[in-house]
Amino acid sequence: MRTLGNVLWFLLAGWWLALLYVFAGIVAFVLIITIPFGIASFRLAGFVLWPFGRRTEFRRDAGLLSVIGNILWILLLGWELAIAHLVAGLLLCVTIVGIPFGIACWKMVPLALLPLGQRIVPIRHPSEDPFAATPGPRR
């Protein structure tokens, strides 16, 4: 089911959202000081391209630099990517088939705004899937 969800996601929104992240990463690599933003953007491009079966979690060892970096990220690149997720989610919700994908797209807005200090991890149990339409019971 994850594979089908990822293929549909890729066809409907994943490829062009990932392209936006790649473009943001290239822009961030232009200046030497924003290379960490570019690395984060490329990492998120891979996640946005194929999100089902993975999730993000905050790293406990992320410190003050990631907070400052996230503030700069929001000002420079994050707000544009967040708007792209909002628009994509709205467009996906126009059809009944696209509603779960639109909701999944909206769940990525915080990630688009605050990418530093987060890591992408595989899902070990289906109840952990943040993009599932109906989450299962938590244990």
Rank of each mutant, 00 (worst) to 15 (best):
E80N: 13
G98I: 06
F47C: 01
L86P: 01
L12V: 04
G5D: 02
V109C: 04
D129S: 13
I96M: 12
E57Y: 06
I120S: 12
F42T: 06
R139S: 04
L31M: 05
L44P: 05
L12P: 01
V48K: 13
A84P: 03
P137Y: 04
D61F: 02
V67K: 15
G69W: 03
F10N: 03
R60W: 04
P115S: 11
G38V: 01
G98E: 08
A104V: 01
T34K: 10
P130I: 10
M1I: 02
G38W: 00
G25I: 06
H85I: 02
G69H: 03
I96R: 10
W15P: 03
C93N: 11
F101S: 04
L113A: 07
L91Q: 11
W73Y: 10
T56S: 15
R54M: 05
D129T: 10
R59E: 03
I35A: 14
D129V: 12
W106M: 10
L31K: 04
I35E: 09
Q118K: 11
M108A: 11
L17I: 05
R124G: 12
I32H: 00
V121Q: 02
V7T: 13
G25T: 10
R119E: 07
I33D: 01
L17P: 07
L76I: 10
L113P: 08
F10S: 03
L11T: 02
G14H: 14
F101G: 08
A133R: 12
L65R: 14
A88K: 01
T95F: 13
V30R: 03
I103R: 08
P122V: 05
S41C: 13
L44H: 11
G136A: 11
R2W: 12
F131N: 06
A112F: 00
S66T: 13
V30T: 06
P36M: 09
A84L: 00
L12T: 03
A104D: 04
T134L: 11
R55C: 06
L72P: 09
W106Y: 08
T95Y: 14
T3I: 02
V67F: 15
A104W: 00
G53L: 09
L31G: 01
Q118G: 01
L19Q: 13
V7E: 09
L65Y: 10
G46V: 03
V94N: 15
L8M: 08
V27L: 15
H125Q: 14
R43Q: 13
P137C: 05
G78D: 08
A45I: 10
P126Y: 09
F47K: 03
N70F: 15
I83K: 05
A18D: 07
V48M: 14
T134V: 13
W79I: 01
A45G: 10
